[in-house]
């Protein structure tokens, strides 16, 4: 019988061919989910323009965003990794305690407020980046600044 051997498709999908040299290289972020979540607001604060630019490029590229927006994409990645790098340089201990707390608490931000407060203070003092949640109702304390978190478990 000339049947083909069944082959699992996820098994041999390694493709390590790098991008051609005509496309500039950029180092990927390389951070896992908890550090990214911990740094998300600082990435947003510093890289807002690049992010908006990239997303707008993708929207207007008419389905060719993957090719046409690579330049903007590289800027986004460079900016985000600069934030991670600065965090690692200036606020390493606070950053580390916060994302490890997130790892241990199901990535729930409200369960890690004291760590977050220390991280935010350090980042604001040294990097001048502030965590701001857009569209918070006026006249209310933003939820990350409230002293008591109703849902926190400790």
């Amino acid at each position: 019988m000339s049947a083909r051997q069944p082959r699992f498709n996820q098994h041999a999908l390694y493709d390590t061919t790098p991008l051609p040299d005509s496309i500039p290289k950029v180092e990927e972020l390389g951070a896992s989910s908890a550090p990214l979540l911990s740094a998300a607001y600082f990435i947003g604060a510093r890289c807002k323009d690049y992010n908006d630019d990239y997303m707008m490029c993708k929207t207007e590229a008419n389905g060719r965003g993957e090719f046409d927006c690579m330049k903007e994409g590289r800027k986004v990645t460079r900016c985000a990794s600069s934030v991670i790098k600065d965090l690692n340089e200036h606020c390493l201990t606070e950053f580390r305690t916060h994302w490890q707390c997130l790892e241990n608490h199901n990535q729930q931000l409200w369960n890690c407020r004291s760590e977050e407060r220390r991280l935010n203070k350090c980042v604001f003092d040294k990097l001048k980046l502030e965590k701001k949640i857009p569209d918070t109702p006026k006249g209310e304390t933003p939820v990350h600044l409230r002293g008591k978190q109703i849902f926190s478990t400790h």
Partner: peptide, 18 residues
Amino acid sequence: KMWARIYLIPALQAEEDR
């Protein structure tokens, strides 16, 4: 939580697209 994700999306999407 939503805004944390929104701020991350461009970076993640750029990596995936590349």
